[in-house]
Amino acid sequence: MFESNADLLHMLSGTGPVVLFVLVVLVLFSLLSWAIIFLKAGTIGKALSESRDFLDYFFDVASIDKVFGESENYSNGSLARVFRAGYIEYRALSDRKEDRLAEERIARAIRREANAESKRLSRYVSFLATVGNTAPFIGLFGTVWGIMHSFQSIGLTQSASLATVAPGIAEALVATAAGLAAAIPSVIAYNFFSRQIDTIERDLDDFSGEYLKSFLNELR
C-alpha cells in the first residue's frame, strides 16, 4: 500500500547532497514566503478596509476632535494613523497662533507618518520578489547538478538505456519543481501586494492635504 510513498521518499533520499541542500533552501524560501504572504494579507487587507471606513467617517463628521476619538477604532488603517499623527502635532501647536510655522510642522508630521506607514506596509514584500526571481534558478541549479551526476553514473554503468538515465533525471527534476512551487505563489503575491500598497500610498498622498486643511481650519 505504501509502496509509492516509499518510492517518493526513496527518490528524495537517493538525491546527492547538493540537490538535497538546494531542496532544503527552497523549502525554507517557501516557508518564509508563505509566512510573509499570510502576514501581509492580514496587514494590508486591514489597512485598506479600515482606511476606507475611516475616510467615510472623516467626511461625515465636522469636528476633528470627534474624528480623532473615533480613529482609535481604526488602529490598523493607514489613513487613520496619518490623521492621528497630524492631530497630535496640531494639539501640541494649538497654544501657538503662528499659522505659517504650525502648517509646516503639521505637514511634516503627516508626511513622516505617511512614509512610516508606507515602509511598514512594504516591509518583507521585497523578499517575495527575491524568492520569485531566484527560486527557479536555484532549482535549476539543483537539476543541472543532479543531471551531471546522472550522466556520470551512466558512464560508470556504461549503459545509456532509459532505465539507467530516467531515475537520476527524475530525482534531479524534483529541484526544479520545488523551485517553481516556491516561486509561483511568491510572484503572484508580490504583484498583488504591490498593487494594494500603491493604492494605499496614493490615498495617503491624496488625503494628506485634506487633513492639513482641516487642522488649519480648526486653528483659525
Partner: peptide, 22 residues
C-alpha cells in the same frame, strides 16, 4: 504566528500528497 501557519500548511500539503497517492 504566520510562520507557524506556513509550516503547518506545508506539512499538510506533504501529508496530502502522500495521502493522495495512498
Amino acid at each position: 504566528v504566520a510562520f507557524l501557519v506556513s509550516v503547518v500548511l506545508h506539512l499538510a500539503l506533504v501529508a496530502l500528497a502522500f495521502l493522495g497517492q495512498h
